[in-house]
Design a protein around this nucleic acid. Structure first.
Length: 593
RNA sequence: GGAGCUGUGGUGUAGUGGUUAACAUGCCGGCCUGUCAAGCCGGAGACCGCGGGUUCAAGUCCCGUCAGCUCCGCCA
C-alpha cells in the first residue's frame, strides 16, 4: 500500500476511533520537547492533531523526533488513544485524543518560515505575498480557497443541470476600442502586430449565440490594464453567461436562484428571492450611488425647494445654475468633535464637493455656520424635511448633480462605518435596472456607452436615440450585494439598424465600425437570435462569501497595487533574443515630471 | 497623473537630535516525562528601505527616491 493510500487526515480524528492504527502525512506545526516526552502538533489540510513521542518507542524514531523543527514534512504511524484525564485540549477539534507515534519518517526538512503558519498572523502583506506558498498554508487561507472551489463547483453544476454548455473563448484575441486599456501581446509571426488579452469574453459569447449554442457559461479570466484598488486586480475571473431568446425576466430569476444556492451551500445562510429592484435613477436619487448599500438608511434628501428662496447665496446660486442641493441626516452625531467635522469636509472634497454645510441639532440648540442665512421658519421647515431630531447632524452638499450624489453617497457610507450602522452578517441583494444607455463624455466630445456598445435600449426609449440620446435607458442590470457590484449584464442589440445607430451615436463611422467590429457585424447578418446575458466578478463574490475585505485574499497569487508579483518578480526584463524574435526594440520614454 | 499612511534584528513593535539602538516572539545550544503560545538558563541576530542635505552629532529634522497599502482620476 502506498503512503497516501493508508493515510488518514489529521483533523478528522475523534475519540470514537480510539485504538485505531493511523498513518499521518503532514507538516510540523509546533514541537514541545520535554526532554523525555515530545509533543508534535501535526498539521495537514484537514486540521491539527497532537502526536506523542515517548522514549520507550524505537530509539531511531525518537532520535528523529528530537530533530524535528517547524514545517518539517513527516510521515507518522501510530495509534489513536484518548488523552489522559485532564490533558484534553478543547481549543482544537481533535483535542480529546492524541496519536501515539510508533514510526517517524522525515520526508523533508524545512527552513524556518519568515512568519507563523497560523491564522490572524500579524505580518506585513508584502512579506505574505513574497512567500505566498507559506501564506496559503495558513488555515484561514486554505478555507478561502476551499470556499472558492465550492462556489465554482456549484456554478458548474447549476448551469450544467439547466442545459448550459461551458465553452472556452480565446485569451489571445483582438484589441477593440471602448472600455479599459488592453494588455497587449506581440506577435512573432506578424512583426509589429499585437494580440490583446480579453477584457471579457463579451464578443465571443455573443458570437456563440449566433452559433446556435443557445446557453453558454464560462468561468473566464479577464484582463484590464487599469490602476488597482482593494477590490480590483489586473487579471480577475468572471462567471460569464449568455442565453438566446431571453428577456430581462428570464435572466434575473435564474441568477437569483444561483446566488441563493451558493450562499445556502457555502455559508448555510438563506437568501430571500426575488431580490428587490431599484431603477438607476432611484438608486442615484436616494443613495447617491449606482451600487447602493441598503443595509442601513440615511438616505439622501432633496432640499432644493426648502432653500431656493433662502438668503444663502451658495445654495441659491447653484440651484439657479441647474445644480442640486441635497442632504443626509446623521443620527446621534451631534457630539461629533469639531476636528472630525472638519475631516468630513476634506472627505467630501475628494469627490469634488467644494464644501460641506452642516447643522448640528445639539441639546442646547441649533449650531451651524449656515443657520444665519435662514429665517426661523425656513430652518425648522428644513430640519423637519430632513427628519432631524435633537442629537443629529444634518449634512448638505450643493453642486452639480454628479458631485452632490457622489459626495453624499460616499459620506453616507463613511458615516455608516464610523457609527457602526451595518449589522454583520446581513445580505442585501439588489438589482439596479434601467441604466442610462449613453453618457456624454465632455473630454472626447461624444457619447460613450455606459455598459457596452451592444446593449439594447429599452423598447419605449428607441425614439429617443434620434431626439435626446442621453435620456435613453438600456435593458441593462447590475446585481449589488451589500453595496458591492457583483456583476451586470444586458439584453443585446440583435438588429443591425439599431446597432448601426448606436455606433453612429458613439462617433464611430460605418468604416470604423467595420474595421473594428466587422467580424461581429457580419456575423449578426447570418440569423442572430435575440440574446442577452450577465457576468459576475467571481473574486468579489468569494470575498463576500468568505468575509474578506481584500481581493488579494481570494486570489492565490495576486498582484500588488503597482501590478507586480512579489513572488515571481513579474513583470521583468527579457533577453535581447526574445525581443529580436518579436521584432521589438524597446525605447523607454521617461515619465514627464 | 494626484493625495494620504507606513518602512528599525527573521517577524511584530519601542525609541526628547546626544553612551554600546530597547522589548516581545522566532532562531541556536543546554536542562527538563503531560505539554498544547510548554517552562527554566545561556547565546547569536540590525550598518534603522535607499540617496543626498542640515548639524559638533541624525533611526530621530529637511529634500529626493523606492517599495507596500488606502483613496481620487481611470476601470464599457
Amino acid at each position: 500500500m502506498t503512503l497516501l493510500a493508508e493515510r488518514t487526515e489529521a483533523g478528522t480524528l475523534r475519540a470514537s476511533s480510539s485504538g485505531d492504527k493511523v498513518r499521518l502525512l503532514g507538516w510540523v506545526q509546533r514541537r514541545r520537547d520535554h526532554g523525555g516526552v515530545i509533543f508534535v502538533d501535526l498539521r495537514d489540510r484537514s486540521g491539527i492533531v497532537q502526536v506523542v513521542f515517548n522514549p520507550d518507542m524505537p530509539e531511531e524514531a525518537f532520535v528523529r523526533a528530537e530533530r524535528l523543527r517547524t514545517e518539517y514534512v513527516v510521515s507518522v504511524s501510530g495509534s489513536i488513544r484518548k488523552r489522559p484525564e485532564g490533558a484534553e485540549n478543547s481549543n482544537i477539534a481533535t483535542g480529546e485524543i492524541e496519536v501515539v507515534a510508533e514510526t517517524l519518517d522525515i520526508l523533508n526538512g524545512a527552513k524556518t518560515p519568515p512568519f507563523y503558519i497560523q491564522d490572524n498572523v500579524d505580518v506585513d502583506e508584502s512579506v505574505r505575498l513574497k512567500y505566498r506558498y507559506l501564506d496559503l498554508r495558513r488555515p484561514e487561507m486554505q478555507a478561502v480557497f476551499k470556499t472558492r472551489h465550492q462556489i465554482t463547483q456549484i456554478m458548474r453544476n447549476y448551469f450544467d443541470s439547466r442545459g448550459f454548455y461551458e465553452i472556452e473563448t480565446p485569451i489571445l484575441t483582438k484589441s477593440t476600442p471602448e472600455g479599459a486599456r488592453d494588455y497587449l501581446v506581440p506577435s512573432r509571426v506578424h512583426p509589429g502586430e499585437f494580440y490583446a488579452l480579453p477584457q471579457s469574453p463579451q464578443i465571443f459569447k455573443q458570437l456563440l449565440m449566433v452559433s446556435g449554442m443557445e446557453k453558454y457559461f464560462q468561468i473566464a479570466r479577464c484582463f484590464r490594464d487599469e490602476d488597482l484598488r482593494a477590490d480590483r486586480q489586473p487579471e480577475f475571473t468572471q462567471l460569464d453567461v449568455e442565453m438566446s431568446f431571453v428577456e430581462v425576466e428570464d435572466i434575473l430569476p435564474l441568477m437569483e436562484e444561483m446566488m441563493a444556492r451558493i450562499f445556502a451551500e457555502t455559508t448555510g445562510k438563506t437568501v430571500q428571492t426575488p431580490f428587490p429592484r431599484l431603477t438607476f435613477n432611484e438608486a442615484w436619487e436616494r443613495y447617491g450611488s449606482d451600487k447602493p448599500d441598503t443595509r442601513f438608511g440615511m438616505e439622501l434628501v432633496d432640499v432644493a425647494d426648502e432653500v431656493v428662496n433662502s438668503g444663502f447665496k451658495v445654495f441659491t446660486d447653484i440651484l439657479a445654475k441647474g445644480g442640486r442641493v441635497k442632504g443626509i441626516c446623521a443620527k446621534g452625531c451631534a457630539t461629533m468633535p469639531r476636528r472630525e467635522l472638519d475631516g468630513l469636509v476634506n472627505f467630501v472634497n475628494t469627490y469634488g464637493a467644494k464644501g460641506l454645510a452642516y447643522i448640528v441639532l445639539a441639546e442646547e440648540g441649533v449650531k451651524s455656520p449656515i443657520a444665519k442665512f435662514f429665517t426661523e421658519e425656513e430652518l425648522s421647515s428644513l430640519i423637519s424635511r430632513m427628519r432631524g431630531e435633537t442629537g443629529d447632524i444634518l449634512f448638505f452638499v450643493a453642486d452639480k448633480d454628479k458631485v452632490v450624489g457622489d459626495a453624499l453617497g460616499h459620506l453616507r457610507l463613511e458615516l455608516a462605518k464610523r457609527l457602526n450602522l451595518i449589522q454583520e452578517g446581513t445580505l442585501n441583494f439588489l438589482w439596479v435596472t434601467e441604466f442610462p444607455l449613453l453618457e456624454y463624455d465632455e473630454e472626447e466630445k461624444r457619447y460613450v456607452a455606459i455598459h457596452h456598445p451592444f446593449t439594447s435600449p429599452m423598447d419605449e426609449d428607441l425614439p429617443l436615440l434620434d431626439t435626446d440620446p442621453g435620456k435613453a435607458r438600456a435593458k441593462a442590470y447590475d446585481l449589488i450585494l451589500n453595496g458591492v457590484e457583483l456583476g451586470g449584464g444586458s439584453i443585446r442589440i440583435h438588429r443591425r439598424e439599431v446597432q448601426e445607430k448606436m455606433f453612429t451615436l458613439l462617433g464611430l463611422s460605418p468604416e470604423d465600425a467595420i474595421s473594428k467590429f466587422g467580424f461581429l457585424l457580419e456575423g449578426f447578418e447570418y440569423g442572430t437570435p435575440p440574446h442577452g446575458g450577465i457576468a459576475f466578478g467571481l473574486d468579489r463574490l468569494v470575498m463576500l462569501v468568505a468575509g474578506r475585505e481584500n481581493i488579494r485574499d481570494v486570489i492565490a497569487f495576486p498582484k500588488t497595487q503597482s501590478a507586480t508579483c512579489l513572488l515571481t518578480q513579474a513583470p521583468s526584463a527579457v533577453v535581447g533574443k526574445q525581443l529580436k524574435e518579436l521584432s521589438i526594440k524597446t525605447h523607454i520614454i521617461a515619465a514627464s515630471k
